[in-house]
């Protein structure tokens, strides 16, 4: 067994999981307040572009990262305004903003660089540094897998804990969970439900902002058209599979990161690239399907009624 290959593969999984972890946490935090954030995709895309543009202007990755997060939060604010204040349908709002993000980022990119495909040639943007973990990096194999990742990868792990703490240990978390479960109860004691939803959406934007920044400011340092490529939706699916648990989302993210890494590997094996590109999306649909079947089975087992009814129906048919 070639261990070097395995080390590299595991390293790639962690790398590719990072944006998914951010996206999934974004989905989790808004889900807790009873909002499905289907606009993660657009938020990440906007963050990726703002990060590149401002880091190129200021030549500072810190400013780039901050503006990426701010860009994503701005998107969250716009969407919140639409569905909380002027009362648009949430799903429609998210679809519309995703649409606008794809077109809008290309529009802005073209105005700034004259290219509709990528900023690679025109903008010299910065990258967020890699971090070598002291001590761990010296452990054979394990060090090679765990150390030397981008700073944001470690931030994403920390964020999992942060999200958990926020949701279960703080006042705002308590209120968010209450809003998600019984908004009228929260309303009745004078807490503004829209405000709580807005805060959770804004936090969702913060996570998406980090995810977007990772896309355009870590392993590549440019923005390209539609570069998030569905990761926002995969993040949504991860949240769903993990039942909106932050820690569960971390685990599920690695599964999807693994699928992504496998696709990358297959690409090197002379398989048709178009078929390989389908892998992450196909895995998403399959995973959602499987988890739903498992959940329904589990419910059925609790309620013997269903299976019994089916069994009896077949027995009757057999007679």
């Amino acid at each position: 067994m070639d261990l070097d290959w395995l080390v590299e593969f595991l390293f790639t999984i962690i790398r590719l999981s990072t944006p998914l972890i951010f996206a999934a946490l974004g989905a989790v935090i808004s889900r807790k307040a009873g909002v499905l954030n289907l606009a993660l995709e657009g938020m990440m895309l906007v963050a990726a572009l703002t990060g590149v543009v401002f880091s190129a202007i200021t030549q500072s990755w810190i400013v780039g990262l901050l503006t990426a997060v701010l860009g994503s939060m701005l998107m969250a604010t716009i969407i919140s305004y639409c569905f909380l204040v002027i009362k648009t349908d949430l799903y429609l709002t998210c679809i519309a903003t995703n649409m606008a993000s794809i077109g809008g980022t290309v529009f802005v990119m073209f105005l700034l660089t004259g290219s509709k495909a990528t900023t690679a040639e025109a903008l010299r943007s910065m990258s967020i540094p890699r971090i070598d973990l002291p001590l761990i990096k010296d452990i054979p194999y394990i060090g090679d897998v765990l150390s030397g990742h981008n700073l944001l990868t470690y931030v994403s792990f920390a964020m999992v804990f942060f999200a958990w703490f926020l949701i279960y240990k703080t006042r705002i978390g308590l209120r968010m969970r209450a809003v998600g479960e019984a908004p009228e109860a929260v309303e009745s004691v004078g807490i503004s439900v829209p405000k709580i939803k807005y805060i959770s959406f804004l936090l969702s934007g913060v996570f998406a902002g980090f995810g977007g920044a990772f896309m355009s400011m870590s392993y590549v340092t440019w923005f390209s058209r539609d570069m998030v490529a569905g990761r926002g939706f995969i993040g949504m699916s991860i949240m769903n599979i993990a039942n909106a648990s932050p820690v569960g989302s971390l685990g599920a993210s690695f599964i999807f990161g693994g699928a992504d890494a496998t696709a990358k590997y297959l690409q090197l094996q002379n398989l048709p690239t178009d078929l390989v590109f389908m892998v992450p999306y196909a895995v998403t649909i399959i995973a959602l399907t499987v988890i739903s079947i498992v959940r329904i089975r589990r419910e059925d087992r609790i309620v013997h009624g269903k299976s019994l009814r089916r069994k009896k129906a077949t027995e009757k048919a057999a007679e």
């Binding site: 308590l174 969970r177 209450a178 479960e181 019984a182 009228e184 109860a185 929260v186 309303e187 009745s188 004691v189």
Partner: peptide, 12 residues
């Protein structure tokens, strides 16, 4: 106000 339909969060 004590509402007709209880304003309580069941899992808390």
């Amino acid at each position: 106000m004590v509402h007709q339909h209880f304003m309580l969060v069941p899992s808390l």
